[in-house]
Simulated scan of single mutants.
Amino acid sequence: MVERARARSHEASRVKAGASWWTRRRTGRCAPDGDTKGNASSRSAWRRGRAPAALAVLTAGLLAFHRAVPNSVGRLGSLLEAFLPWLGLVVPVLLGLALLRRSATVLVALLLPVAAWTYLFGGLLLPEANSAAYEVVAVQHNVSDENPDPVGTARALAGAGPDLIALEELTPRALPVYEKALATDYPHHAVRGTVGLWSKHPLTGSRLLDIKPRGLTKTWSRGLRTVVRTPHGEIAAYVAHLPSVRVGAGGLASSRRDESAGLLGKAVAAEKLRSVILLGDLNSTVDDRGLAPLTSRMNAAERGFAFSFPAVFPVARIDQVMARSATVVHLRTLPATGSDHLPIAARITLG
């Protein structure tokens, strides 16, 4: 009698143990081979971090399809594109989070924004390619109408040894200073309104370029077109300063800039000379669709980010050197001057 009771008790214990093992296996706390800890860790590594993984996918989508972001409300598309390279900062943040949480899902998802960013901007990080024998070096700088040291600014720009120097925000008081400081090395120059071009080579056909947007009643002359007679042929040089933009509660206010960019684009399209160089403060990055009338007709830099604004902590390159039937092979920033912009220097291969 006692032995039968013991047998029944032993059998009940075996059934209970089996049920407990099966429950642990179904809930992921026990592997078939008994390695409960390893199996749980493997499964949770793929389950953790779903929200950061979704953020990585969203970042990749914004990089790859930024043109799909509408501009109808607050010009959000242009605002995104003005700071598009900085979306790459999401990657190291999420990478640190993935390592901290040991999330395989986030690590895999991060491949998408890395690939998108590399496709868009990776080429700008490459070293400068060997340039051809025929080239022009040009410097572009918004010198600021509040620059306290125009003499020092002029000397700094000339010290880079460019063939061309384009300046914006020239004031009647500062203009004679720049003319005198640059006269020795740059005997040829043309100024229209607040923009000017200094050249080592002769200039001809200089004229005002009308890029004034509608609604402006005050004097506004920010465009110049001239022809540079280089040893390698004639180049049509355009200097422009597009209207400023503002970021507020309603988004990006850029309608005047976009209108002025359209007028400038039409002028470039009508230019009869084959080689064209555009230098200026365009108040926008080349990724911004607001500059599409120009970027659709001209080449941007192949190498170099050259963030130029603001000078204290540059976050965007709104000063541009672009070309048609020529190649801007490299851009770099020069040391700060008395302006709130940094100067940029471009190496341009003709042909």
Rank of each mutant, 00 (worst) to 15 (best):
V2P: 00
H10M: 07
H10A: 14
V15F: 07
V15W: 05
K16C: 02
K16W: 00
A17M: 09
W21R: 15
W22E: 03
T23N: 04
A31E: 06
A31W: 14
P32Y: 13
D35W: 06
A40E: 14
S41L: 15
S44T: 08
S44F: 11
S44Q: 12
A45K: 15
W46Y: 11
G49Q: 05
A54G: 11
L55I: 13
A56M: 12
L62Y: 10
L63R: 13
A68E: 05
A68C: 08
N71E: 10
S72T: 15
G77L: 12
L79G: 06
L79C: 05
V91W: 04
V91C: 09
L95D: 00
G96K: 08
R102T: 04
V106K: 05
L107K: 13
L112Y: 08
P113K: 13
P113E: 10
V114C: 12
W117F: 10
T118S: 15
Y119H: 03
G123T: 12
L124N: 02
L125H: 07
P127S: 15
P127E: 01
A129L: 04
E135C: 09
V137M: 03
Q140G: 01
V143F: 10
D145T: 11
D145M: 14
E146L: 05
D149L: 02
V151P: 01
G152S: 09
A154Q: 09
L157E: 09
A158K: 06
A158I: 04
G161F: 01
P162D: 04
P162N: 12
I165M: 06
L167S: 06
L167F: 02
L167E: 01
L175E: 15
P176W: 09
P176G: 07
V177F: 01
V177G: 04
Y178W: 09
L182P: 12
A183L: 06
T184Y: 10
H188R: 15
A190Y: 08
A190L: 05
R192W: 05
V195C: 01
G196W: 04
W198Q: 07
W198Y: 15
P202G: 07
T204H: 01
L209D: 11
D210L: 02
T217G: 02
K218H: 12
T219C: 00
R222H: 14
L224C: 12
R225I: 08
T226G: 08
T226K: 02
I235G: 14
Y238E: 04
Y238K: 11
V239Y: 06
A240P: 08
P243D: 04
S244A: 14
S244L: 13
A249M: 09
G250S: 15
G250F: 03
L252M: 03
L252H: 06
R257A: 01
E259N: 09
G262Y: 07
L264Q: 11
G265H: 00
V268C: 11
K272V: 04
L279A: 11
S284H: 11
V286N: 04
D287T: 14
L291K: 07
A292V: 08
T295Q: 03
N299H: 14
E302D: 09
E302Y: 08
E302T: 10
A306N: 14
F307Q: 09
F307I: 02
S308Y: 10
S308D: 10
F313V: 02
D319S: 11
M322Q: 14
A323V: 00
T327G: 01
V328Y: 03
H330N: 12
H330V: 08
H330P: 02
R332I: 01
A336I: 06
S339M: 07
D340M: 11
P343W: 01
T349P: 02
